[in-house]
Design a protein around this nucleic acid. Structure first.
Length: 662
RNA sequence: GCCUGGGUAGCUCAGUCGGUAGAGCAGCGCAUUCGUAAUGCGCAGGUCAGGAGUUCGAAUCUCCUCCCAGGCUCCA
């Protein structure tokens, strides 16, 4: 028998008998690896463990505790889910079941339009566990497209996928099937699934999974096509990893801004107002005010001018802008006034700023002209889309529009991106990447030349920023491409924050112009940009980022002063008054209940500094400092020293926890 | 908008078989005067989301509406 050489990831070479598979390779390397192996990567391509290797192949053995490995076992677990559902609902149609972040899902259409309920998850999970215990192999077979169609003739979704590959209608399905070859994996004679693979060798390699929830999902993500029943699950390489993930979910839940918003008395959604309409309570209002004031200051320094516009307008404005044509569904229905005139609540601020630009003749000497407004807009979001403060129907954008010349555009965009990132960093976010969204086919206005120029300019600016750049093909607005700044928060989730959109169209639609040095009229370029996105959403993201522990400069209550006994209350008030003079938000809790109880309440309210003052402090004009997140209180801190510490921390936007962490 | 689940005091939740509502925390009152995360006693607090129906009787069963959650779709 001849011998082949294969190369391992570390560059070393192993000789194997010809016809050996990755399974044998793993065994040759070590028994531990042989035991852990679930799949292989051969020359970069993911394959089953038993696929024969060839001379010169570069081979990586895939084990469960890796990104690729988890992907494989999640996908395999999805197959087990499908088998379990088909056992429990004979005649069910199964559609697709990919692995996703942290888990997998599978979509089904049950016989007679039946639907899963939450209680079904337990039953299904039990069947899945018995399938795992049955130690079923995943056996790969390959068929022609015709054979595949015959094999799955009772499974309309599978037939559509296979047929789609045949006629090239759905290129993404080529991944599902693999070129002109239809591959399947059979676990038992009764159950096989169309699949590119690879899979774990046997179901006994699975087991650390949990079905999470049922949901509806449209076939092929298309609202007009049938809605399928989707089951989501999570799956991991070990019991510990699964448990850690579930703990992580609980952590995220504790940070949920809706929960913290209620607990910390920041805002609420009174049922009387309707979905997606919030009221901000005094503490939430303070956070908002601080955010807005800081933003205003930065915008003044950044050369912006401040404008204002009304909340309602005649339909004409949005006919001109094109919003009524594209987004009428997302706007509140019009109010009809007695002369038959239709008025709309504004979903956007840009047309108003356009009118301000047009209010008089503009000179090139005024450009770039930057108009800023905290503009409150109303959008009729679908009822199922509203979510806490992150998706609301009434929201305030930190919206600005920059009018400039074509020549100024690149520089202006580049300065703008720096401005954006600087402001976001001031709020404590500093892990960013950019996304470039390009022309949406079929719903874009404007010429190819304009779009190409706009995309090229934005692309250059994005690349020059030196951040990771992700392309989002077709994700732009109807009037222009956009850069969005994505930020990772403290627990690694990413949020789309600022957007910068380049717009050649709106100035044309409004016939805006300026007089240039050549004494002729030229068309300005318009840049739309929002840094927070909306104040509401940005606040929600910050609350979750900080788990409610807002940096001192943003905290609604920065300091609480507690006298030990009520004869210390006078001094407590003196301390508070001195701090108030420094602009600090401070309150005094009178000594009519036990100290421990008052401290506990302040801690639960996440107040950055609790000051305790007693006999010694009154005598020596000191305070006891109990800082949020600190293990031990500091006794006898000179009041003047504490004031200056706090002044510095607030001015620098520091957060006590963050500074202690370093 | 669609699918699944939910809505009981300000909050977290109990409420059995259909028999007319309960706890803890928070709030209020009184007492307590205390050095770093819960002092004691008392009081008050509910159209059981809203409406209709079945029933002698509905928080509980049925239907409709509103609102919330998790998804799908959408997101200028």
């Amino acid at each position: 028998m001849s011998v082949i050489d294969v190369q391992l990831p570390d560059g070393s070479v192993r000789s194997l008998d010809d016809g050996s598979s990755a399974r044998e390779l793993a065994a040759a390397i070590g028994s531990r690896l042989a035991h852990d192996a679930i799949a292989a990567q051969v020359n970069g391509e993911l394959t089953d463990l038993n696929r024969p290797l060839h001379h010169g192949d570069r081979v990586t053995i895939v084990t469960p505790a890796s990104d690729v490995g988890r992907d494989v076992l999640r996908h395999s677990t999805a197959h087990v889910l499908a088998q379990a559902v088909l056992r429990l609902w004979p005649g069910a149609h199964y559609a697709i079941g990919p692995s996703i972040r942290d888990g997998f899902y599978y979509d089904f259409a049950l016989p007679q339009g039946a639907r899963f309920s939450d209680d079904d998850l337990d039953r299904i999970e039990r069947v899945m566990r018995s399938i795992v215990a049955e130690d079923q192999p995943f056996l790969r077979s390959e068929y022609s497209i015709e054979e595949g169609l015959e094999l799955f003739k009772d499974q309309p979704f599978k037939v559509e996928i296979i047929a789609g590959v045949g006629d090239g209608a759905n290129p993404e399905d080529a991944g599902e099937v693999g070129g002109s070859v239809v591959s399947t994996y059979a676990n038992t004679p009764e159950f096989q699934d169309l699949c590119r693979g690879p899979h774990v060798p046997s179901t006994k390699r699975l087991g650390y999974f949990k079905l999470m929830r049922v949901a509806g999902a449209y076939w092929r993500g298309d609202e007009k096509r049938p809605q399928l029943q989707r089951i989501y699950g999570t799956a991991w390489e070990s019991k510990e990893a699964l448990a850690a993930h579930l703990v992580q979910l609980e952590e995220a839940e504790k940070r949920d801004h809706r929960r913290l918003g209620a607990e910390m008395d920041l805002f609420s959604f009174p049922g009387e107002l309707g979905p997606g309409l919030a009221v901000f309570h005094p503490k939430g209002g303070t956070i908002r005010r601080v955010m807005e004031e800081y933003s205003r200051g930065r915008h003044v320094a950044g050369g912006y001018e401040f404008v204002n516009s009304p909340h309602i307008t005649k339909a004409e404005l949005f006919e001109t802008s094109g919003h009524l044509e594209w987004f009428a569904d997302g706007m509140y229905p019009p109010m009809e006034l007695d002369d038959g005139q239709q008025y709309y609540l504004k979903p956007m601020n840009c047309p108003f700023h356009m009118l301000i630009f047009k209010a008089r003749q503009r000179s090139y000497r005024e450009l770039p002209l930057r108009m800023f407004e905290f503009g409150t807009v109303y959008r009729y979001e679908k009822s199922g889309a509203v979510h806490g403060l992150t998706r609301v129907r009434g929201m305030t954008q930190d919206d600005a529009h920059i009018f400039c010349t074509r020549e100024q555009m690149a520089q202006e965009l580049s300065d703008l991106l720096n401005f954006v990132l600087g402001l976001l960093r001031d709020f404590g976010l500093n892990d960013f990447y950019l996304e470039l969204s390009t022309r949406p086919e079929g719903k874009a206005v404007g010429s190819d030349e304009e779009w190409n120029e706009a995309e090229a300019t934005l692309g250059d600016v994005a690349r020059q920023a030196g951040l990771e750049l992700v392309l989002d093909v077709g994700g732009g607005a109807f009037y222009g491409p956009k850069i969005s700044v994505q930020a990772r928060d403290a627990i690694g989730r990413t949020h789309q924050l600022s957007t910068i959109q380049l717009d050649f169209q709106t100035p044309q639609r409004f016939e805006a112009s300026y007089v240039a040095s050549d004494n002729a009229r030229h068309r300005p370029i318009m840049i739309h940009r929002a840094l927070f996105g909306t104040v509401e959403r940005f606040m929600a993201i910050l609350i979750e980022h900080y788990a409610g522990n807002m940096p001192t400069w943003m905290s609604p209550d920065q300091v609480v002063v507690l006298g030990v006994r009520d004869d210390h209350d006078d001094y407590a008030h003196q301390v508070a008054s001195a701090l108030r003079g420094d602009g600090v938000r401070v309150s005094v809790e009178l000594a009519n209940e036990p100290l421990g109880s008052r401290i506990r309440r302040a801690k639960l309210e996440k107040v950055p500094y609790v000051l305790v003052v007693g006999d010694e402090d009154v005598v020596s004009r000191t305070v006891g400092v109990n800082a949020r997140g600190a293990n031990d209180p500091e006794r006898g801190v000179d009041l003047e020293e504490f004031r200056s510490r706090l002044r510095v921390e607030i001015a620098e936007h520091g957060s006590p926890e963050l500074s202690r962490a370093t």
